[in-house]
Nucleic acid binder design. Structure first.
Lengths: 236, 236
DNA sequence: CCAAAAGTGTTAGGACTACACCCATGT
DNA sequence: ACATGGGTGTAGTCCTAACACTTTTGG
């Protein structure tokens, strides 16, 4: 009979993604203390007593961003538990993925953490702990979610144009999307978007109709990206 | 500054599925001690010092089944951490999904645990802890995996007929699959199966060709099931 | 010969890509 | 007028579901 019950701490780490100026951004903090001092990291914290995992994730999210929460998507990504991932001792991390609209700016003054949006390309390879790995999983999950669900609307404001929505796809996938066919596919998917009645003029060109997100969650048929190697296992 | 670092134990629980006599089965133990004494539960155990999560999952799997491991699929399902899920204290569980071929029988004598195959229909609603919830997630994930990956072969022996493979789909999905179109789809998917050259005669009818699993992991295009409500979020 | 299972051919329909084309606005 | 982005129509192609039909065995 094994009595080697290992006690450990559970961290909740968040990969919070948004689209800003045509670039995919992730919310990152700069670590104020060792380990990994002055290095970028995903926001997160330890699970507290009596707290559910999702509760903890929402709490961390609110601490780092000023979000109403309605317009946002939060989802469990997976668990990362390599024995040596944290030099302070055995810490297992539950990673969550959050898709957020382009916020004015995260609450910069909260705690000592200087959370700010960073282009994903700038931070990949430079993150503390195993957060690079978490971010990679988050990106692939986000790309896959856009194919099979309506979650692209989570990146948009309450009202958005077809072009806004298409930009989300292009930025997250990193490949161009045909505007004509995209519009048709979205409108043919019942419950994806609903016309809000308004229009929005841009710098030039015909003003675009405004939409709100619809009730559907899953895309059937999906909107598939092209330049993808589909030989390996899909994101779970 | 919060110093309420909560220490807890991490359990690894396994939902090990197989197909036996046309019915989907899950490996279950009977709990010998409280809590939930004499009740059915998924096999599992606590994470040990210096052990990776996947390592722990494989260790539990080997303790409960006599598996060569080559022919088997093991995958992280998610994490279940409701504060009151275990009356003994705060225990967070990492759930893994395993797809296994129809084994002769699990090693019944291992430890005090009397692990045995149970039809999924017989145990749903009766499992200890939150294992009912874990099993539900496992089932949905398995169904989805069959749509998008070649993992159905993980349920089969080393050599199998097209009928064997089709039975896996029917049993896991719980809906009939057209034999003609199924065969074509599988054979048109490069790398799904490879003919082994042999044939196998059944009680009656033309003998079926035997196949081995091929190198492909992902199905493109997928093999979609019908009777599914696709309005909710897909399995992650 | 007959039943049963394996496997092939065929046809109608849906969805996709690619592109020609029209619409509505600012300059 | 014209550049620019929003949006519609259409042709060819691919994939699919559904089912008639052929092949190969045991009884």
């Amino acid at each position: 009979m094994n009595r080697d019950h290992l006690y450990l701490r559970l961290a909740v780490d968040l990969a919070i993604l948004t689209v800003r100026d045509g670039v995919l951004n992730v919310l990152a903090i700069e670590r104020a203390k060792p380990p990994f001092q002055d290095q970028a990291a995903l926001p997160g914290g330890f699970l507290r007593e009596g707290e559910d995992l999702v509760q903890a994730a929402w709490r961390e999210l609110r601490e780092e961003t000023a979000l109403d929460g309605e317009t946002l998507h939060l989802e469990q990504l997976g668990i990362f538990g390599a024995p040596d991932r944290d030099p302070r001792g055995r810490v297992v991390s539950v990673a969550y993925l959050a898709l957020a609209p382009n916020l004015p700016v995260p609450t910069a003054g909260s705690d000592a953490s200087a959370a700010q949006w960073r282009p994903v390309a700038d931070v990949t390879g430079c993150l503390a702990f195993d957060h690079d790995e978490i971010l990679a999983v988050a990106l692939e999950r986000a790309r896959s979610r856009l194919e099979f669900t309506t979650l692209a609307t989570a990146f948009c404001d309450k009202e958005f144009t077809m072009g806004d929505l298409r930009e989300v796809y292009q930025v997250v996938w990193g490949e161009p999307v045909d505007p004509r066919n995209f519009s048709r596919k979205v409108l043919n998917t019942e419950g994806f978007v609903e016309p809000s009645g308004g229009r929005r003029a841009q710098d030039t060109g015909r003003p675009a109709a405004l939409y709100r997100r619809g009730p559907a969650a899953r895309l059937n048929p999906p909107i598939l990206r092209h330049g993808t190697d589909r030989s390996s296992l899909p994101t779970p």
